[in-house]
Design a protein around this nucleic acid. Sequence first.
DNA 1: ACAACTGATACTATATTGATATCAATTAAG
DNA 2: CTTAATTGATATCAATATAGTATCAGTTGT
Lengths: 162, 162
Amino acid sequence: MKVLTKKTDYAIRALLMLGAKKGAYVSAKAIASEQDMPYQFLRGVLQEMIRHHLIVSKEGVQGGFMLAKDPDEIGVRQLIEIFQGKVQVSECMFRRQICANRSRCVLRHEIMRIEQVVHHEFEQVTIGKLLRKLHAGANMMPSLRDGEKPDSLKLKEGVVLQ
Amino acid sequence: MKVLTKKTDYAIRALLMLGAKKGAYVSAKAIASEQDMPYQFLRGVLQEMIRHHLIVSKEGVQGGFMLAKDPDEIGVRQLIEIFQGKVQVSECMFRRQICANRSRCVLRHEIMRIEQVVHHEFEQVTIGKLLRKLHAGANMMPSLRDGEKPDSLKLKEGVVLQ
DNA sequence: ACAACTGATACTATATTGATATCAATTAAG
DNA sequence: CTTAATTGATATCAATATAGTATCAGTTGT
Ligand code: FES
Ligand code: FES
């Protein structure tokens, strides 16, 4: 179960970069090279964010992209909804069906409660918050405290995180 | 963002049915027809659950499937992991990469915290709990209290939920 | 004029999801 | 013992989603 797809991932990181260079236009090329993303793919992501008024652009030489909103107003939940669609349990609700049996709905009731929790949590995480954590020099490597520890992610001698 | 795929959905509902007819073997055909699932597809799902020792089967006439565990020991989280893979943020961790910049990991840190919450919540929802809710005659229709309200899901006159 | 940009599409490749089909092996019932 | 109802195990297919590439027209600073 993939929580964030590439598009969402790239979108967040692009926004973080725009937030870091606040007030200046940053080109897709600059973002793509610095963040190691496929250029054309990223451009599609940026255009989508323009359509949703999260960023604005300037064409031509010295053009690029800039945040259109307060970073605190841009939440990960919104980004997920833009690039991965609304968080939903399954599809039956969206097909004008009347549920055929009681059990489905007992399930739904539970899952919708969880949906609320997830929504709430993702809502909390905004570009602004992430930027402040960045600025405070927070964790370079995640704590990996939940058993998802990959088998070889220790920093090698001499590897420096920029 | 689809929280439950068809496989997980069918698995849960099949387990609920097995839990309701505790002690007896229930055939795939019976489940498929009563729950309106594609027969062969459901069979694949059941086989997967056998491999994970959630259920047992009996071949031949009067054969079928039966729970192999206490319903309270079967959580939705486990089912999601079986049919949709482990809940993960994005893929970079699983490719032996050293992250290229700090921002990705700030993000990861936040998301992993959310992952914990989600895990915990899904862990809580077990087949046993759902069965008790069913038995208590809980909500036939979900409360739809979070704005996900579909445009026409009101019960028509005379429609009876079994 | 020109190079550095974005806007807008069209396209391809791959992976995932959802579903179907087939055949062998097992078993209860007649 | 035969047969029908069933699971076990695969193989295959179609639809959709995800990831990425390519192209060309329009804009703008130098
Ligand atoms: S609303 Fe679809 S199962 Fe109840
Ligand atoms: S671990 Fe992959 S970005 Fe930090």
